[in-house]
């Protein structure tokens, strides 16, 4: 409990080492993406950014990107709506089948995604539905909505139910309570859950692999290329995919950091008028 400074330094080093371990392959992909040669070999002798130009002008790549983005956006919106109410049922309300419901929600998260994807493929076929990018949305939702629900539920656990009771006591209807108390209090969790939903859908491939039919998402295409043989576009598109995720995260942080400033500006504006 004291005199542990030197041990603490070891712990910090261990933390840094773990982070290095987690990010080393991403860095390797980054280096590979700017190698000029068609066949990758380290150390890289000649650097070039030509593959990026090729990637960004290719129609295939644009199709992949637009499919991935469309799926991610729809998955985010739908999973947030379902997950918000799902989280209230998970954490906030005391009702008879809650424990059973909680376990039902955890199951898809604990389930191997490859098997889930195949099961859905078979299920769609049984129902006579031809898999396209639309069925992939369903597949993503099965896995992502429970995650969204859990993230919002964690916040809902810390939520004092007497706040809702107080609002009801002051004459609010169920809808007004939702609008005035519940939604504003859970909003921080809803935004981070939305971020998770978008990014997890964007990066997912085991579910997309079997459920997109003739369409293809970016991670799926990358996987197909990796398994079938090396293409210099793989690291390039890999980096672009990571960069897109990073950009989304950075934007989210920027917006969150800007909220106080925007509020202040609005207040100043209102005071001035």
């Amino acid at each position: 409990m004291k005199r542990h400074t030197s041990i603490n330094i070891l712990f910090y080093l261990y933390g840094l080492l773990t982070l290095a371990f987690l990010y080393l392959p991403v860095v390797a992909v980054g280096f590979a993406s700017i190698s000029k040669s068609r066949y990758l070999r380290f150390p890289i002798r000649k650097y070039a950014t030509g593959w990026y130009g090729k990637a960004l002008t290719s129609d295939t790549v644009m199709d992949l990107l637009s499919t991935s983005v469309t799926i991610a956006v729809i998955v985010t919106v739908v999973s947030l709506v379902i997950g918000f109410f799902g989280a209230l049922a998970f954490a906030r309300y005391q009702w008879r089948f809650r424990k059973l419901y909680q376990k039902l929600i955890l199951l898809p998260i604990f389930f191997p995604q490859t098997v889930l994807g195949l099961a859905l493929l078979m299920w769609f076929n049984t129902l006579g539905i031809t898999p396209t990018w639309k069925t992939a949305i369903i597949a993503h939702l099965v896995w992502i909505t429970p995650i969204v629900t859990l993230i919002i539920a964690i916040r809902a656990y810390g939520f004092d139910p007497s706040l809702e009771d107080a609002a009801r006591d002051m004459g609010c209807s169920n809808w007004q309570i939702m609008k005035e108390v519940t939604i504003p209090l859970l909003m921080p969790a809803v935004t981070s859950a939305g971020l998770f939903a978008f990014l997890l859908s964007w990066g997912n491939f085991p579910l997309s692999l079997f459920t997109t039919g003739a369409d293809s998402t970016l991670p799926e295409w990358l996987y197909a290329k990796m398994v079938s043989g090396y293409s210099p576009l793989v690291p390039t598109l890999g980096v672009l995919s990571v960069a897109a995720s990073a950009a989304v995260i950075a934007t989210a942080f920027f917006i969150r950091a800007m909220i106080p400033a925007v509020k202040q500006a609005r207040r100043n504006y209102q005071q001035a008028h």
Binding site: L24, G203, F205, P235
Partner: peptide, 23 residues
């Protein structure tokens, strides 16, 4: 650490594994 570890989850696992392949 939490942020950086969570962020790896957003990178497709096949890209990260591919990174190990070329490493």
């Amino acid at each position: 650490i939490t942020l950086l570890v969570v962020m790896t989850l957003f990178v497709s696992e096949n890209i990260r594994l591919f990174g190990w392949v070329i490493t």
